[in-house]
Design a protein around this nucleic acid. Structure first.
Length: 110
DNA sequence: GAGTTGACGACTT
DNA sequence: CAAGTCGCCAACT
């Protein structure tokens, strides 16, 4: 029984993985969940990032978006706007629909 | 302690 | 092809 992986909470693995995202690239919730061994646990991934506090902003949560390549928040459009701004500063371009080209900026974890 | 919610994704109808 | 439902893990009520 892989105690190593089990020892680390799913949400902690999300943080570690997000920290490994190279600058100028982005990834999706589903991709992270898939890497962690739960291809359908995208919800847990999203919640893990939501749990981040201002003091934990050292994690590039901004590089994590939904499978559509768009920023999808819930009621916090201010944060979504901030995320878009941060991504543009990293060199990531947005489409006319505020969408990111995952084929170009999508992070290849494998 | 149990139930519901939440930055989503994939499958089923 | 489009809409609806289930699944995942942790936190909040």
């Amino acid at each position: 029984m892989k105690t190593e992986e089990r020892n680390l909470s799913f949400y902690k693995q999300v943080y570690d993985l997000v920290c490994k995202i190279p600058k100028g690239k982005v990834t999706t919730y589903g991709n992270i969940a898939y890497i962690l061994g739960k291809p359908r646990a995208a919800r847990a991934v999203g919640y893990a990032l939501n749990a981040l506090k201002k003091t934990e902003t050292h994690i590039p949560w901004q590089r994590v978006i939904n499978s559509k390549g768009m920023i999808s928040f819930k009621g916090d459009i201010f944060r979504a706007n901030l995320q878009k701004k941060l991504l543009e500063e990293e060199g990531i371009e947005f489409d006319e629909n505020d969408k990111i080209d995952l084929q170009k900026y999508g992070w290849l974890s494998l």
